[in-house]
């Protein structure tokens, strides 16, 4: 789990598996707590990770999530195999959603996911190819320059 320049850990997220949805984010939170990261940063990272994980469970077939931790930053990279996002600008607007009734019954699918990831991240990158999938790179700065 530890490499020369910090910590790196991989996780797999299964699309459609609502019963296990969120477990990866809970584990990430526990890892960051063990390492002794500032609780306010852990909270932002856990929220962003959970939103991203729910998006995979709701929309994609599966995804690889990589958590990287260095003395400078936490990076969460999620690469999914899924339908991709038709219009990223639209998906980044609060309230825009293509969720089904089942997703809404789970308490999600209100069109808050990507905007909330963006709000919590220090740096947020998103790229998507229709019919292939979506990649999110979410970064949290551990030193000066990060959100309070």
């Amino acid at each position: 789990m530890f490499c020369d320049d910090g910590l790196s850990q991989h996780f797999q997220i299964q699309g459609g598996d609502f019963s296990r949805a969120g477990r990866v984010s809970t584990t990430i939170k526990e890892i960051l707590q063990e390492v002794g990261i500032d609780p306010a940063i852990i909270r932002r990272a856990a929220i962003a990770s959970y939103e991203a994980e729910m998006n995979v469970v709701m929309y994609a077939q599966k995804a690889d999530l990589t958590l990287k931790l260095t003395p400078e930053e936490i990076t969460i990279r999620i690469e999914d195999q899924g339908p991709g996002i038709k219009n990223i600008d639209q998906a980044m607007q609060e309230g825009f959603s293509t969720a089904t009734d089942q997703m809404r019954e789970m308490g999600f699918g209100a069109g808050m996911g990507l905007p909330n990831i963006n709000r919590n991240a220090d740096v947020f990158w998103i790229g998507s190819i229709r019919g292939k999938g979506t990649v999110l790179i979410i970064t949290f700065l551990l030193k000066k320059g990060g959100k309070a």
Binding site: S19, G22, M112, N116
Partner: peptide, 25 residues
């Protein structure tokens, strides 16, 4: 839960009618 993730603050009492695992998570 999307709203809770957006407005929730540390230390709150979460009041909800959603009873699935996601409410606790």
């Amino acid at each position: 839960m999307s709203d809770v993730l957006a407005f929730g603050q540390p230390g709150i009492l979460l009041m909800t009618g959603l009873t699935n695992t996601q409410s606790v998570r």
